[in-house]
Computed example of a mutant assay.
Amino acid sequence: MLKRTFLTTAAVALAMAATGGAALAQEKTKVGFVYVGPIGDGGWTHEHDVGRRAVEEEFGDKVETVYVENVPEGPDAERVMTQMALDGADLIFTTSFGYMDPTINVAKKFPDVKFEHATGYKTAENVGTYSARFYEGRAVQGLIAGEMTESNIIGYIGSYPIPEVIRGINSAYIHAKKVNPDVEFKIVWAFTWFDPAKEADAAKVLIEQGADVILQHTDSTAPQAAAEAAGNVYTFGQASDMAEFAPKPRISSIIDNWAPYYIEQVKAVMDGTWKSEQTWDGIGPGMVGIGEITDAVPAEVKEEALALKDRIASGEYHPFTGPLKKQDGSDWLAEGETADDGTLLGMNFFVEGIEGEIPQ
């Protein structure tokens, strides 16, 4: 009996050697996700979690995913990332701008773990970044908003005054102004990504100021509910479709489609082909989607908005095309000139016509 056991063990060892340790290669790839909000926020975090579940569906028992939700930006994020790495994660997605420095710090301690940071700009040998060109979707929203407002006052709920949010405000304003020269933007800064009470209050303030269309760069559906309660106010879904509020107040949406990217990066880790890159995709590659434009929007406006979407997707049109001036009246883009990515990634100014200062 002992002899048979010895032969079996030896045979296994020889088989593993012959296949280059294939048995070990069958271990699951562990993928972690760090979320700034709850997976039930109906917006930003919800869509990242849709991507996580798509990874599970794509790879089945070859992958294990874990996540931690409601992680504040700062020291708590670093602690959560560290624990994920210690628990054996092979790849960690950190899904909020304020996770940038914590991601870099933890990556230094775990050089064999791959990290992907959403919406940031700092990289390392084991840290890549990814984001979507949300400003492309904001252009489409701006066009619709400019056509739909009757008060000529459009409200915008900003989260934090970072380039991503400033780009969105500028893009929406430019395209609202193109179709409605009388349009005015009012901006309320919530200084949060996800806080339904603050977001609802911001929406109410904008409605009190006369806004009958509201855009948001915060993650909950609270502004939708506030608009619905007010009546005669239109809104747009943020990050996720928020279709439960259609056909109004929610008349369209920007949808963040992370699933293909997550699947691609997990596969690269599995294949051993992963490398640090900076990815910034938009409507054309499908990372930014435009949710259904409801019948609350006139057919001709819907047609115009979809035509703009198609022109952006094909590369025929860039949302930041001159002539454009900065808020202070100084020249920025000449006739036909388009903004370069470096300027967009660091955008810290409003375009001409937007009132109010960017908080420091």
Results as ranks from 00 to 15, higher is better:
310 D>L: 06
310 D>R: 12
311 R>I: 00
311 R>N: 14
311 R>C: 04
312 I>M: 07
312 I>R: 09
312 I>Y: 10
312 I>A: 09
312 I>E: 05
312 I>T: 10
313 A>R: 00
313 A>V: 08
313 A>Q: 08
314 S>W: 02
314 S>C: 09
314 S>T: 13
315 G>D: 07
315 G>I: 15
315 G>A: 14
315 G>S: 12
316 E>P: 12
316 E>S: 14
316 E>I: 07
316 E>H: 07
316 E>N: 07
317 Y>A: 02
317 Y>V: 08
317 Y>P: 00
317 Y>G: 04
317 Y>C: 01
317 Y>E: 12
318 H>P: 00
319 P>H: 03
319 P>S: 10
319 P>T: 10
320 F>W: 08
320 F>C: 07
320 F>I: 06
320 F>G: 06
320 F>V: 07
321 T>Y: 02
321 T>R: 01
321 T>I: 06
321 T>E: 06
321 T>H: 01
322 G>V: 03
322 G>Q: 06
322 G>F: 03
322 G>S: 04
322 G>R: 07
322 G>D: 04
323 P>Y: 01
323 P>R: 05
324 L>A: 06
324 L>M: 13
324 L>D: 00
324 L>N: 02
325 K>Y: 04
325 K>D: 14
325 K>F: 04
326 K>V: 00
326 K>E: 00
326 K>D: 00
327 Q>S: 12
327 Q>D: 07
327 Q>G: 05
327 Q>R: 09
328 D>E: 09
328 D>C: 02
329 G>N: 08
329 G>D: 03
330 S>W: 06
330 S>R: 09
330 S>D: 06
330 S>P: 00
330 S>F: 03
331 D>S: 14
331 D>K: 14
331 D>M: 09
331 D>A: 15
332 W>F: 09
332 W>L: 07
332 W>K: 04
333 L>Q: 03
333 L>E: 01
333 L>R: 10
333 L>S: 05
333 L>M: 05
333 L>F: 04
334 A>M: 06
334 A>E: 11
334 A>L: 10
335 E>W: 05
335 E>F: 08
335 E>C: 04
335 E>L: 09
335 E>Q: 11
335 E>P: 07
335 E>M: 11
336 G>L: 00
336 G>C: 02
336 G>W: 03
336 G>V: 02
336 G>E: 12
337 E>I: 01
337 E>K: 08
337 E>C: 03
337 E>M: 03
338 T>Y: 08
338 T>F: 08
338 T>K: 15
338 T>W: 08
339 A>N: 11
339 A>W: 11
339 A>G: 13
339 A>H: 10
340 D>C: 07
340 D>R: 11
340 D>Y: 04
340 D>V: 13
341 D>Q: 13
341 D>T: 13
341 D>W: 10
341 D>M: 15
341 D>I: 14
341 D>E: 13
341 D>R: 06
342 G>F: 11
342 G>E: 14
342 G>L: 13
342 G>I: 13
342 G>Y: 13
342 G>A: 15
343 T>D: 15
343 T>P: 13
343 T>S: 13
